[in-house]
């Protein structure tokens, strides 16, 4: 798996996959996609990077421990539900905010924040597992 072609092209694939995963995640509310799928795509990209460059290298490139990303995801998902308490409604009541930016309207909402949380959880957890399994063999050697 450590051919020079693969190692050269891997970062490019990874970059494309990561961007695509964010796109899939954000469009999820209106078209096929969402946090689960986006997270899985992103995690696959990290797995590919790990295969190409080794787990240690990939972890350094990520800078943040993948499990910490997952924890952050659970946190913001829960936090997005708590926001509704400020409006006096029950836990997880959605709040919508339409930002006018020039020509377009950008909808911001707590379900979107929640979906981003889901994205981070799936991404972080599976990336952590994949990297750990990829790195496990290296340590043994």
């Amino acid at each position: 798996m450590n051919t020079i072609i693969f190692r050269t092209i891997a970062p490019l694939i990874v970059a494309i996959m990561l961007i695509f995963s964010v796109y899939v995640c954000l469009r999820g509310h209106n078209e096929p996609g969402g946090g689960f799928i986006g997270g899985l795509i992103a995690a696959s990209s990290i797995a590919i990077l790990g295969m190409a460059n080794g787990a240690e290298e990939t972890r350094r490139a990520l800078r943040i421990d993948p499990l910490a990303i997952a924890g952050f995801g659970v946190f913001i998902a829960g936090f997005s539900g708590l926001l509704s308490l400020f409006t006096g409604s029950p836990f997880m009541t959605s709040i919508w905010l339409y930002l006018e930016l020039g020509q377009t309207t950008v909808p911001l909402s707590t379900p979107m924040v929640f979906d981003i949380g889901v994205y981070f959880v799936v991404f972080g957890t599976i990336a952590a597992v994949a990297l750990a399994l990829e790195g496990d063999g290296e340590e043994e050697r």
């Binding site: 969402g34 689960f36 899985l40 957890t125 599976i126």
Partner: peptide, 10 residues
């Protein structure tokens, strides 16, 4: 099913 797939994978 969507969540079941992901949890099943985990």
């Amino acid at each position: 099913i969507l969540t079941a797939i992901v949890i099943g994978f985990a």
